[in-house]
Design a protein around this nucleic acid. Structure first.
Lengths: 270, 270
DNA sequence: CAAATAGTGTCTCTAAGACAATATCAC
DNA sequence: GTGATATTGTCTTAGAGACACTATTTG
């Protein structure tokens, strides 16, 4: 014990090189847009929060919210802090996406990033700029393969559009590694991080583990189905969908009225 | 551009506090032990590699192999390097387990650990001590709930036995968080890391994604089944198991003879 | 009424689990 | 032959997908 104390007092971590450590967050939201037809239900799109970098490096490029780990906090606390700074909303939970430590990924030097995904349900959230950000916007996500088999990530918000190309590489353990072919106007390796987050989100969405986080307290089964389909990019027949989720939800006594068609019963997560 | 160069030359990451970063590895292996009966197939156990710490802190305790991240390498490269130093075997791949950044988890100071799991198949591997280690041994793993609902991790190698108690906490995204109640003679928060690695290993073992890594090139279906059952702690009827894996393997022309019962055809991963 | 979604019922197909039965070897 | 595992086949059940049909609302 005496021994150990002596050891520790003589020991200095500062004698060895250390990286800087950041948490970067891929914040997902389901964005609803009116379909124009009073009968039709609204369309939805998966969108992700990006911030226009106001300072160097990658000035003017779009980047994920994130920031440096401070002493005395866990990397998760750091991630929560950064999301709250940018969105003023505290997400229900964080989903670990991966660690990005490729040398040279940040021109400022040796910086490794811990990536997390989170789900922001509050549709009223006003993404607000932080210190380092000139602007923050939600971008609709499109992630699909092109004719060469490469993955194309397209992020769109009105006039602002970002396009990145990645090459998939299947590794063991069912993981996919993405290599950056063209990062477009996305800063750093953030296209890679978004791709990995999308994959993690989709993998977890199959069992309804976190689909409910996108929705308010009560919802129609069509809304629930719509969210899952939007996230996973699949399509299921409504009749089969209701059977699948029957044990996960419980009825309420309310209905969603005034939609130009038969009212839908509202459900709650069980 | 000029602007950015100027910014970068004036910028110093060293002005901000930085943690030390390590990679710790949970190396799994299937250990076979003879059943004593010439007719019976051999028994198997899941085991994990631990190293007896030769230096402070936690001198004399058992710890996971691992080491500090060096400049110019990724965290995965660091993990591979550390496994090879300890086992002289390069595993097929690494499975990310999580980041452990709780302040105070290491008495030496601010150190965050990136945990990986890997599978070592070579049964002939001689775990060899590294610099910092007085001894390295494979411990049979037992991980189950006690009567209070807490998880008890027992690691056993002959006379050496380690017992740690953790409390499970279910978080969103289907993840489980483990809190350390009693770490026994395991160093640092390594009991937590082993628990998380076990959970990740089991989750991935269901779809045979990495079960094959435990086995040699060719194997009998009973061996394959045994590995899956050992890892996942389940039990399936052999008849049903073979149907389930029928599309994942292909026959060879060889048989495993001399077992005191009908020879079993050897298969290969497809 | 027309258009749209909400909701029910039913058929098929597949995969998993239970279990019976046969095959083959070492001693 | 005996005791063990290997291997095949069949029955049942649960769940997913396809699809036909009915119900209800608003303009």
């Amino acid at each position: 014990m005496q021994d150990e104390k002596a050891f520790l007092s003589g020991y200095s971590l500062e004698d060895y090189p250390r990286p800087s450590v950041t948490a970067d967050i891929v914040a997902f939201r389901i964005r609803e847009s009116d379909s124009g037809n009073y009968r039709r239900n609204s369309q939805t799109a998966l969108s992700v929060l990006l911030i226009k970098r106001g300072g160097h490096p990658y000035k003017g490029c779009w980047a994920l919210p994130g920031g440096f780990l401070s002493p005395g906090e866990t990397i998760e606390q750091c991630a929560f802090r950064e999301v709250e700074e940018e969105t003023a909303v505290k997400p229900a939970s964080l989903m670990p996406v991966g660690v990005f430590s490729e040398p040279g990924r940040d021109p400022r030097g040796w910086i490794i990033s811990n990536a997390f995904a989170c789900i922001i349900s509050d549709p009223a959230v006003r993404a607000q700029s932080g210190d380092d950000a000139a602007d923050a916007k939600w971008f609709d996500v499109d992630f699909a393969q092109d004719e060469n088999g490469d993955s194309v990530l397209t992020l769109q918000n009105g006039e602002d559009s970002v396009r990145a190309v990645l090459r998939e590489e299947r590794t063991q353990f069912g993981m996919t590694r993405y290599n950056l072919l063209d990062s477009g106007s996305l800063a750093f390796d953030h296209a890679k991080i978004i791709a990995a987050a999308l994959e993690a989100l989709r993998a977890g969405a199959a069992d309804f583990e976190h689909i409910f986080d996108f929705l308010p307290e009560t919802f129609t089964l069509a809304e629930l189905q719509n969210v899952q389909e939007t996230v996973m990019n699949i399509s299921v027949l409504p009749a089969n969908f209701r059977r699948k989720v029957a044990n996960l939800v419980e009825e309420t006594e309310s209905y969603k009225q005034g939609a130009g068609h038969r009212p839908a019963r509202l459900y709650r997560k069980k």
